[in-house]
Amino acid sequence: MTVTESPASPLADKAKELVRVHLRIKRYDPETDTRPRWQEFEVEMSPGDRVLDALHLVKWTQDGTLTFRRSCAHGVCGSDAMVINGENKLACINLIKNIGTDLTIEPIRGLEVIKDLVVDMEPFFAQHRSVMPYLIAHDDPGYKERLQTQEDRDRFDDTTKCILCACCTTSCPIYWANSEYVGPAAIVSAHRFIFDSRDDGAQERLDILNQKSGVFRCKTSFNCTEACPRGIKVTQAIEEVKRAILYDRV
């Protein structure tokens, strides 16, 4: 990565000298470990680099067995959710200069750890699928586009941003205690369609979310909203779904 130095440049931060970053990573290899263990690493990097870059430095120069998911490296694919210094974050959108040089990194909670920072995502995606996360439309628009006003489009804009990273669901204390709860991410996925003026499946989804595993498990702790790397107002979306059920109105 290009490193430059100039106080006049907007990139001055990126330019500063390399800093020493200390990582404390919770590791678990199912083939050799009986329980998780902590391991520490030191790397040198630019303050403008990402936490993900620190993990790569360890993997590529010190210990190739360190295991984590990642892909896009700029916060749109949702692969690298992890607990960084106690909070759910994406490793690729957090820079060392903002988060500090002492990093404690653990897998996200509430999903089974398979190896190091890799957890079993299947239950999470199964919950996503359980809320019918696809447009259900009974009309036949023919060969034309359906019309939708800008106001109707704005109604569900926030929840279209979801990247299914699981930061919200795995920050939820209710989810930790009861994995039957569909969790915030699945409710966000349902919200995206319930409030889409083109959709006819709201009632079916509301019925699903009115069950014991549904929205009323939520005790409004706001952890999900704080954890969302996309800035989605998750708790508000959950509240809107609750109100839709209570007042039978979308």
Partner: peptide
């Protein structure tokens, strides 16, 4: 043209004109 209409029918939330079109 068909491909865009297809995606709209699949539910893609396109940004809209003041008349509600894509």
């Amino acid at each position: 043209i068909d491909a865009v209409i297809d995606l709209e029918h699949f539910g893609l939330p396109f940004s809209r004109t003041p008349q509600g079109r894509i």
